[in-house]
Simulated scan of single mutants.
Amino acid sequence: MDDRQFRTAMGKFATGVTVITTEHNGDIHGMTANAFMSVSLDPKLVVISVREEATILNKIKESKNFTVNILAADQQELSMYFAGQIKEPREVVFDRLDGKPVLGGACAQVVCEVSTEHVEGDHILFIGKVTDIHLEDKEPLVFVNGKYHTLAGISTS
């Protein structure tokens, strides 16, 4: 199998969209990611996957913390900006939760301390111990088949 076939197959799995943020030396860094999942309820743990070449990688290693911002349906532009798809500079306003930078308007903001990290293939998996959470009653942004979607109008009955 080639890389394109693998990516296409993985793209069939619908995911939420997150922006991972961290603060290092007074600067806030962010990266769009859909490689995120909960790991444990007791203790409360999540995992994110960051490519070895990602600019944010060493920032997370040095700060020892990260936040996961689960984007709302109206935050596609933020996803595109932090994915590098929008090149022109944008002023992004960050809120604070537990002293850490978070994106206002997200469905959920999850603040984490790095518990452990694992090298797997060309990515580093960061296990984060959840220290705080903020929730909003909003619909999530969804990504599948290389495109953004919303859940509006989708019925499960």
Rank of each mutant, 00 (worst) to 15 (best):
M1I: 10
M1T: 10
M1S: 09
D2N: 15
D2S: 14
R4C: 09
R4P: 06
M10Y: 08
M10K: 06
M10D: 06
G11C: 10
K12N: 15
A14N: 12
T15I: 11
G16N: 09
G16Y: 02
V17N: 10
V17S: 12
T18I: 00
V19R: 01
V19A: 02
I20L: 13
T21C: 09
T21N: 02
T22S: 12
N25E: 15
G26Q: 10
G26W: 09
G30P: 14
M31S: 07
N34Y: 09
A35Q: 06
S40C: 14
L41D: 01
L41R: 00
P43F: 00
K44S: 06
K44T: 07
V46F: 06
V47Q: 12
S49P: 05
R51Y: 04
E52L: 13
E53G: 07
E53A: 13
E53W: 01
A54Q: 11
A54H: 13
T55I: 00
I56R: 03
I56H: 02
L57E: 11
K59V: 00
K59F: 06
I60L: 11
K61L: 14
E62C: 00
K64V: 01
N65I: 03
N65K: 11
F66A: 08
F66H: 05
F66C: 08
N69R: 01
I70R: 00
L71C: 03
L71S: 01
A72Q: 03
A73M: 09
D74Y: 09
D74E: 15
E77T: 05
S79K: 05
Y81S: 02
F82S: 03
A83N: 11
G84F: 10
E88S: 12
E91N: 15
V92P: 00
V93P: 01
F94R: 02
F94D: 00
F94H: 02
D95V: 09
D95Y: 02
D95C: 03
R96C: 01
R96Q: 08
R96S: 10
L97G: 06
L97V: 14
L97Q: 08
D98H: 14
D98S: 14
G99E: 10
G99F: 13
K100P: 00
P101D: 08
L103V: 02
G104C: 00
G105K: 04
G105P: 06
G105D: 08
G105I: 09
V110W: 02
V110T: 10
V111G: 08
V111D: 08
E113R: 14
E113S: 14
S115I: 00
S115V: 06
S115G: 04
E117P: 02
E117Y: 12
H118M: 10
H118I: 02
H118P: 00
V119P: 06
V119R: 14
G121N: 09
D122P: 09
I124L: 06
L125R: 04
L125F: 11
L125W: 04
F126G: 11
G128D: 07
G128V: 03
K129T: 06
K129A: 07
V130M: 02
T131W: 03
T131R: 14
D132I: 07
I133Q: 03
H134T: 10
L135I: 12
E136F: 03
K138T: 03
K138N: 07
K138L: 13
P140V: 10
P140D: 13
P140C: 10
P140H: 13
V144D: 00
N145G: 12
N145K: 12
G146E: 09
Y148V: 04
Y148W: 08
T150S: 15
L151H: 01
G153I: 01
G153M: 04
I154P: 00
S155N: 04
